[in-house]
Structure formats: structure tokens, C-alpha cells
Design a protein around this nucleic acid. Structure first.
Lengths: 241, 241
DNA sequence: TATTTGATCTTTACGATGTAAAGATGAGGG
DNA sequence: CCCTCATCTTTACATCGTAAAGATCAAATA
């Protein structure tokens, strides 16, 4: 949109202690979020994260820049620095938000499941559903290279996600999975579940399953394909004669 | 490495028709690739692709910029434009190269396989091995968002990759897979194979399997985990008592 | 209460990138 | 022999991330 950020506009001529800048900022802010905006903003950190989420949904991963987020929040382009350090910091915190949303969606997924099969399919379906509903967020969480997992918030949220997965797999296998040691079979089961759902999601979001979906019986949805993928055996001919 | 591209260096003072630029370029070129470099270069397109591959392996995905590639090839930063249009073009052609390497690796993988099990594991292992040996390339092929699949070279190479996979799955299921129609079971089998290996590879490259690998019996390699993942059944308790 | 302090936000500046447009170059066809 | 046009270089510009210095104000301090 070539807004060009008004460089060297007020700094011309006499070096007056600039008075009219605060009202301008206030007007800008009022137009975007709420009404209360007492100069120091009070809650810029949260506002920036929400702005980032909005930018991400509107303009995708490529449009999610530090400056765009600052613009969306109505603050100067350097304001995020103080709260997140750099772009990696912002992306990491945003990814943490995503993981928490994700974990919540997973946790509440198996609530209405009755049969064991439904329960087994609930989580994977919720996984793919979240990614389809929030492809940008999923991209931040799993596609970006600029994530700093040493940040506690991100580390914890991602860890919780893994723990939930491992736990679900353990439940399905009807055995306790101890925290610090795994048998090869247990590890393989977890890796398989995660790889399968994550790979499926990635390929689906990238449109790489279109080729398959187009050749399937008329009107087969990705969800149906996912179900079939999760339920049939790994090798050999299909169950029928 | 702030090289800063020597802007406004020769363009100062008198506007002489610049003579000394060709020798300089030749010297630069000689230092990097071969010796023959007759101004119009002759084969810039290929040279740029090879330069891109070098940059990718040296500096990773983040370092792979149009200007860096031009620098590596010893030409001006705008030279790639004429051959690839824009960054998307270069990335797409490079991804096509990657897919061809990848397909070749897959094709020659099952040569030394004897038993059916070995044959079934050969391709997935080759898949992961290629990604581990060329993580940058794999990133270009599967992580980047800026790919233009309408480019014939990329479309063909990616298509061939998919066809090889579908074919292998069909062979394993001991049935012919017709080109234009698939049963749900067939589609599920293909999607499962691809999702599993692709997901595993992604998680492995992103270091997200460290958590699992660390809890496994001392010295378990990713390869071993992959094998176990591919061979054991999907649900239920492990084979043993 | 008056002053200082420190966190927060803005300005300014710089190098790097992608891309467009105009200028130089030289190989090959007329 | 000249001229055309694909190829490559220069120049220019908007945008981005980041650093550094200045402005502002709430709250602690004297």
C-alpha cells in the first residue's frame, strides 16, 4: 500500500519540541483498537501480539513483518523491539500463543467422543482442523525457521503439546508412558502418530494432496481421507476380499 | 560480512565510458568458478543455479538471496532477473533441480534390496537420507512458500516424484494403480506413506524428535526409529506378549 | 511536594534486499 | 559491414530489520 512512513516530515526547519504528535498517535490508535490509550499504552505487549495475529490472518506469513505489526497496533516501528527484542522474539511469542490455542483445541476435542474409535480419531481431526482454520499460525509454529525455543513461554507451550501427544498415544496403547524412558516400540508409536498427522497437515496446507483428492471418489473430503489413512493397516492388501 | 556492494564508487567525478569494469569482472569470475568467461558468460543460467546451490549449502535458506547468488556467480545483482524473472523464479527452478536429484536418489535406492522388507524400507530410508544430506534443498522443496508450480520444469519434476511414490505404494500393495482413479483405500495408502515419511523428515530436520530420541535406548539412530515406525502396527499393543 | 529516575515509546539512521528501468556490450543475422 | 536484440550492468527506490539517541511520563525518592 506504499504508505512510506512519513520520513523527514516534522523534523524540518526549527527544532520545536513537537507537541502535535501525541494527539495524532491517539487518533490513529482510536481508529484501530479501543479508546483508552494513555500514551504509554499500558499493554503494548498484548496489543502487539493480537495485532500480529490479525496481520498474519490478513496478509499471511509473508506479510508478517515487525513494521507491519507496529503499524497495525498504531505505534512506531521500533516499539516492538523493547518488548520482544527482535523479529525472532515476536515470532517465538506468537508461536507460543499458537501452541496454547492448539493445545486447548486438542484438549477439548475428545470431550464428545463415545466409542474408542471416535476417541482415537478425535485428536488427529482436531489437529488438522486447527491447522486449516489457522494456517498462518500453523506456519509460524512449524514452518518458520526463526523460532527461539530457549524462550520459556515457547518451550513450555511446545513441550505441553508434545506431552499431550505422547499421553494420547500411551492411552491408546493402554500403557503408562514414563516420563524419562521409552522403548523403541513406544517411541515408534509416538513418532508415527506425530509424523503422520503433521505430514498430512503440511501436505494438505501446501495443496500437495489435491492430486490425490482429485482422483478419489467424487466429493471425498480431506477429513475422510485422514480417517481412512489412520484406520487401515500399514501394508498389504485392503481388508476386503 | 558487510561487503556493501560498492555503490557510487566509479560513478563519481567525470562520466567516462567505464573501461576497467570487464577485467574486474573477469578476475572475480576466475576466482570462483572456471576460467572461460567471455563477457556474456554463455551459460549464466546454469552457473546461477549452481551458485545458488552452493550458497544454500553454505549459508542456509536465510542466506539464499538473489543478490547473494549473483555475487557468488560473479555477476551484477540484477543479472538473474533476465533468466528467472524474480526470486520466486529462481527458487522454483532450484526446487526443480532438487526434485530431480531427489528422484534420482529414490530410483537408485532399491537397487541393492533383496528381501521384500528391505525393498519396502529402501525408499523411505533414501527419502530421509536425501533430506539429511541436503537439508537446504529439502527446505526449498517443502518449506518455502514462494514456489511457482505452473513452471513446467518444477511441475514435471514434482509430478515425477509423486508418480514414483504412488507407484512404489502400488507395488507394495501388489496391485496396479491406474493413472486417473483411486479407491479410498489406495489414496489412503499413498497419503499415509507420504505423510509419514514427510512428517518424520520435517520433524527430524527441525530437531523436534530429539525429545523422543533422547529417551530411547542408548544410541538409537533416527534411521532405526524410522524403521520401527514403518514396521510396527498402527494401533494396539506391540507384537510381543 | 518537588525532583529524579527508569521504563516505554519515537525519531533518526544505516545496511541489505527485491524489483524496475535505463544504459552498455557484443554475438550473430541482414 | 552494419545493425539488431538478447544479455548484462548501473542506477534508483521502497521496504525491511536493527541499532542508537531523544522524548515522555508514571512512580519512587528526598
Amino acid at each position: 500500500m506504499g504508505k512510506s512512513e512519513i520520513r523527514t516530515a516534522t523534523a524540518r526547519g526549527a527544532r520545536t519540541p513537537k507537541k502535535a504528535s501525541a494527539p495524532a498517535r491517539l487518533a490513529r490508535r482510536t481508529a484501530s483498537v479501543k479508546a483508552e490509550a494513555p500514551y504509554h499504552h499500558g499493554a503494548l505487549r498484548e496489543a502487539l501480539l493480537q495485532a500480529a495475529e490479525r496481520v498474519l490472518e490478513r496478509d499471511g506469513l509473508a506479510g508478517l513483518t515487525l513494521r507491519a505489526v507496529a503499524r497495525e497496533a498504531g505505534v512506531s516501528h521500533a516499539a516492538p523491539t523493547h518488548h520482544f527484542g527482535d523479529l525472532t522474539g515476536l515470532l517465538s511469542e506468537l508461536a507460543a500463543v499458537g501452541f496454547r490455542q492448539f493445545n486447548a483445541a486438542m484438549a477439548s476435542s475428545s470431550d464428545s467422543a463415545t466409542t474408542p474409535i471416535e476417541r482415537a480419531l478425535a485428536r488427529p481431526k482436531a489437529y488438522v482442523a486447527y491447522a486449516q482454520a489457522h494456517p498462518g499460525m500453523y506456519g509460524i509454529m512449524f514452518r518458520t525457521e526463526r523460532l527461539d525455543y530457549s524462550r520459556p513461554s515457547l518451550h513450555e507451550a511446545a513441550e505441553a503439546s508434545f506431552a499431550g501427544l505422547a499421553n494420547a498415544v500411551g492411552m491408546m496403547r493402554q500403557e503408562q508412558i514414563s516420563g524419562d524412558a521409552l522403548t523403541l516400540h513406544q517411541g515408534a508409536a509416538i513418532a508415527r502418530a506425530w509424523s503422520m498427522v503433521h505430514g498430512f497437515t503440511m501436505l494438505l496446507l501446501d495443496g500437495r494432496l489435491e492430486d490425490i483428492l482429485g482422483r478419489l471418489p467424487e466429493g471425498t473430503t480431506p477429513e475422510r481421507l485422514l480417517e481412512a489413512m489412520l484406520m487401515s493397516p500399514v501394508t498389504g492388501k485392503p481388508p476386503g476380499p
